[in-house]
Design a protein around this nucleic acid. Structure first.
Lengths: 340, 340
DNA sequence: ATGAAAGCGCTAACAT
DNA sequence: ATGTTAGCGCTTTCAT
C-alpha cells in the first residue's frame, strides 16, 4: 500500500522526454542540452526524486550493505566498535546489517548464510567463542565477498584483520601485577583456540619467565567465558589454600564474575587480591574499585575494519592485510597495593 | 568481480525448460509435472539456488529491511532492546539496519532520510533527546512507511509505541526513598519535552504529594543528559547546605555521574545519600553499591516493537496502538539505609 | 502442462 | 542531442 515513490518514468512523462534523457540529465551528461538538464534537475529536486536502490542494486549486483557479526551486541566493547564501523561506512554511502551470534557457532553460521543470501557487499566479523571450524567463512571467500575479522580472528593467511598486540598487552599487565607484589597469579581466560586467548596466555607466561623476582606460582584457568563458569572457577580458587593474590581476567564478563565473587567472599580488591584485565574502557571506570586494564581503541578498530572492507570492495579481492592497533595500559585502583 | 550467483535462468538452461517453469516448480505450482518439479527442486538445492532479494524487492517494492534508530548504540539499554528487535524480526525474515542518532536531531533527521531512501519496509525509533520537532517523522508517515516508537515517544495519536508506566515507576521509586528516610530529595533529569522526563517528574511529584511524613524538601534539576552536565549539577548540590539526602536519577548516564561525584566528595551511598534511578538492569548490578532501580524489560520492549511493525506491514497502515509493558522495582543497597 | 512476454526502475550500448 | 532497446532476476498474466 506504500505511496509510490517518484521514478524516472514519472519525470520523463512530466517533462515530455524519454527516460534515458532524464537519466542522463540527472548525471550531467554532456550530450544533454544544458537548459533541459537544468529543468529536469529542478523537477527532480522539487519532486524529491531518489533513485531506487533496488533497481540500481539489481543492475550493478550490489546492495551497498555490509554485514557485521559480533558475539554479543549488548557488550559495550562490540557496540562501540560497531559505532566506529557505522561512522566510517555511512560516509561511503554503505549501510550495515548487524547480527549477533550470541557466542554460538550455529547462530554464526546461520547469520553468515542469511547475510550472504541478502547479497551483502562485504562482511565484518568477530568470531564466536566456540567457532573452531571455519567452513562458513571459506564459503564467504568462495563467493568472493570481501571479509574482515577484528579482535578474534582466524584464517589469517587469507583474510584481512584488525587486531591489537595481545601478547605485549598481557605481558605488560602481568609484569605490572608482579611489580605490585603479586606472587600467586592466576589468569582466568577462555577457550584456547581463540587467538585472543592463547596470545594473552603467551604474554602472561612471557612476563612470568622474564621476571627476576620469585618464587612465583602461576596458573591458567580456561572457562567458556560465561559469568557462571568464571564464578565457579573463582569459588574454587578462593576456598583453596594458598589463595591467589592476583588475578588477570581475559575480558569483561570474566572480570565482573571475579569481582562479585571476591566481594562476596568478604575479600577486598586490591588489598587481598590484585585485579587487572582486558576490559572495556567504559566498564573499567564504572566498576569499583576502578579497574586496571588495557584500553582498546574500539572506535578506531571499527573504523579500520570498515576501511579494510571498503578497500577490498574498491580494489577487488586481491589485497589482504593485518592492521595492528595500539593499546594503552591504564593503571587504576584495582591493581595498586596501598601498602607496598 | 563477485562470483555470479546461480539464477533461475541458469537452472532453466540446465534443465532445458523455460524460466517460468522453473519459477513455478520451485514454488510447487500444481500445473507443473510432479517429476519435473522434483527434478528442478533437486537441481536448485544442489546448485544452492537462492532467489535474488534485489529482484524480488524490485518486483514487490519491498526490501524486507527494517530501520532502527536509537540515541546511542553503546548504551546497554538500547543494544539490549535491539537484540530483542533482531530476535523477533529475524524469525519473520526481516533484516535490521541500525543507525545511531547520538542524541542529536540533525543526525536523526539524516538517518530517517537515509533509511527512507534505502526503501525500508518499516522504522523503529527511540527519539533523540533534543528531538523536539517531528517533521521528519511526519515524512515517514507521508510515505506510508510503518513507524513504531519505543521508550521515548511522540506523535502518540498517530504512531504505535511501546512504553512503560513512567509515572507509576517514578512514584514508587520516590515513595521508597521517602520510606527509607529521605527528606531532602532531588530528581536529576533531562529536557522536559521528552515524555520519559515529564512523566517521571510527574510520578516523583505525585509521591511527594501523597506522602504523610514531612516536612520534605524537593527539587528537580533538568540537565542535557550528558555526564558533564549531570556532574556539574551534582557538584553544586553537594557544596550547598543543606545537602540532599536522596537523589533520583533519570537514567544510567546521570546515575554514573552522580555516583562518581558523590564518591569523590568523600560521601557514601547510601549512608549520606540514598540513590535510586531508572537504570539498566545490567549496570544496576555491576556498580557499587548495587543500585535500586526499575527494571525495564528491554528484550521484551524490542520484541514488542518488532511485533507492532510486523503487524502494520501485514495489515496495512491503519492500526496503531500503544503497548505498556510492566516493570519491576528492584530494591538494592543504594537506597536502603542500614541505620533506620 | 509449459512458454512467451511484460514489467518492477534503472543504465548503457546502440541507433538516429 | 535525444530516443530505442536490452538486460539485471524475478513473478505473473496471457497465450498455446
Amino acid at each position: 500500500m506504500k505511496k509510490k515513490r517518484i521514478t524516472l518514468k514519472d519525470l520523463a512523462t512530466e517533462v515530455g522526454v524519454s527516460i534515458s534523457t532524464v537519466s542522463r540529465a540527472l548525471k550531467d551528461h554532456p550530450d544533454i542540452d544544458k537548459t533541459l538538464t537544468k529543468k529536469i534537475q529542478a523537477l527532480a529536486q522539487q519532486k524529491n526524486y531518489i533513485p531506487n536502490p533496488l533497481a540500481m542494486g539489481l543492475l550493478r549486483q550490489q546492495t551497498r550493505v555490509i554485514g557485521v557479526i559480533v558475539p554479543d551486541l549488548t557488550t559495550h566493547f562490540y557496540s562501540s566498535i560497531i559505532t566506529g564501523i557505522e561512522d566510517e561506512l555511512r560516509l561511503a554511502g554503505y549501510y550495515i546489517v548487524i547480527s549477533s551470534s550470541k557466542e554460538r557457532v550455529e547462530k554464526e553460521i546461520e547469520s553468515v548464510q542469511n547475510l550472504l543470501n541478502l547479497r551483502i557487499d562485504g562482511l565484518i566479523v568477530c568470531i564466536a567463542q566456540d567457532s573452531e571450524s571455519t567452513e562458513h567463512f571459506e564459503k564467504v571467500l568462495d563467493h568472493e565477498v570481501p571479509l574482515v575479522f577484528f579482535d578474534r580472528v582466524c584464517l589469517e593467511r587469507k583474510v584481512s584483520s584488525v587486531v591489537v598486540d595481545n601478547v605485549a598487552m598481557a605481558r605488560d599487565l602481568t609484569a605490572h601485577l608482579i611489580d605490585n607484589g603479586a606472587r600467586r597469579l592466576v589468569h582466568i581466560t577462555g577457550p584456547s583456540h581463540l587467538n585472543i586467548v592463547h596470545e594473552r596466555a603467551e604474554g602472561y607466561q612471557k612476563a612470568l619467565q622474564q621476571t627476576t623476582v620469585g618464587p612465583i606460582s602461576s596458573q591458567i584457568i580456561h572457562t567458556d567465558l560465561s559469568t557462571e563458569s568464571a564464578a565457579k572457577a573463582l569459588r574454587q580458587l578462593l576456598t583453596a589454600e594458598p589463595r591467589p593474590d592476583a588475578i588477570l581476567g581475559v575480558n569483561d564478563t570474566v572480570i565482573f564474575a571475579i569481582m562479585d565473587e571476591i566481594k562476596s567472599h568478604g575479600l577486598s580488591i586490591p588489598k587481598d587480591i590484585l585485579l587487572a584485565g582486558f576490559s572495556d574502557e567504559f566498564h573499567a571506570r564504572v566498576i569499583e574499585p576502578k579497574l586496571t586494564s588495557v584500553a582498546h581503541p574500539t572506535h578506531e578498530i571499527g573504523r579500520s575494519a570498515a576501511q579494510l572492507i571498503l578497500e577490498q570492495i574498491e580494489e577487488g579481492q586481491a589485497i589482504h592485510k593485518k592492521i595492528v592497533l595500539n593499546t594503552a595500559l591504564h593503571i587504576r585502583a584495582s591493581s595498586t597495593r596501598q601498602n607496598s
